[in-house]
Nucleic acid binder design. Structure first.
Lengths: 123, 123
DNA sequence: CGACTGTATCGACAGCCATCGATACAGAAG
DNA sequence: CTTCTGTATCGATGGCTGTCGATACAGTCG
């Protein structure tokens, strides 16, 4: 069940109502946890923001390996994780491979986390 | 460096601008990845939504152990992870311990993930 | 006080994951 | 075709993490 290369997560299949509203189903929770797991690594978070904030909304891998202290295979691995989570898309154009974010996926997670102002005051 | 019981994440120290706008700093990425890691488990996601959607905005642990197939110590462990990530707060009142979500933390993550409509059309 | 219930901690263990070097693959350039 | 560069895959490895049973702790009730 926990095979390494899972199929890319199907965006439409995942729920999107705020989790504050109603309890998450077990199935949805599994799908969503995969996406959050993709965000649970500092390198992947920075990769994602680098891609998202890059001019034109996409970035070549060659732009992404520089800012990190980890090896090129590791960067490639992290990009694969982000892609399989459905958070980024990629395409080869000639020599270089380009990555871009999938806004719908990010917005879905954002909507899920949306909480009402202050249902309970933090102590 | 990777001790099990980290101090609870300080909310105010973490950035909140959309990551699509500008690249995440290394420090912020580490902080944020800890919170996303707390969300990267199906049981914890369901726990969080159970707590958030519970009447009164808080739930007793006794309300949370039932819906799951895992043992009570495991639930307790997951609640601790959520608490140390700053996503929930807790308090003992007499015999029972109550948990509630920290809306500011959820909203901060939601804001971070907010992406512009469709900077690039998904292929 | 002692018994009982609800919750947390401990120690162990199996499976997962981030990382690396080595290497394979894809396209461009000579 | 050969070489070179950019990227992905492979296999190994050390560390992290989800899970459990056993047990400790906190508060309530007789």
């Amino acid at each position: 069940m926990s095979k390494q290369s899972l199929p890319v997560i199907d965006q439409a299949a995942v729920c999107c109502a705020p989790m504050v509203r109603e309890p998450l189903g077990e199935i949805d929770a599994v799908e969503l946890s995969r996406m959050f797991k993709a965000l649970s690594d500092p390198v992947r978070l920075r990769l994602l923001s680098l891609i998202a904030s890059h001019e034109g909304g996409e970035a070549c891998v060659c732009d992404l390996t520089g800012p990190f202290d980890v090896s090129q295979p590791t960067i490639s691995h992290h990009l694969k994780v982000l892609r399989e989570a459905g958070l980024v898309g990629s395409e080869r154009r000639g020599t270089w491979v380009y990555y871009w974010v999938m806004p719908a996926a990010l917005n879905r997670l954002a909507a899920l986390l949306q909480a009402p102002a202050d249902s309970k005051v933090a102590k």
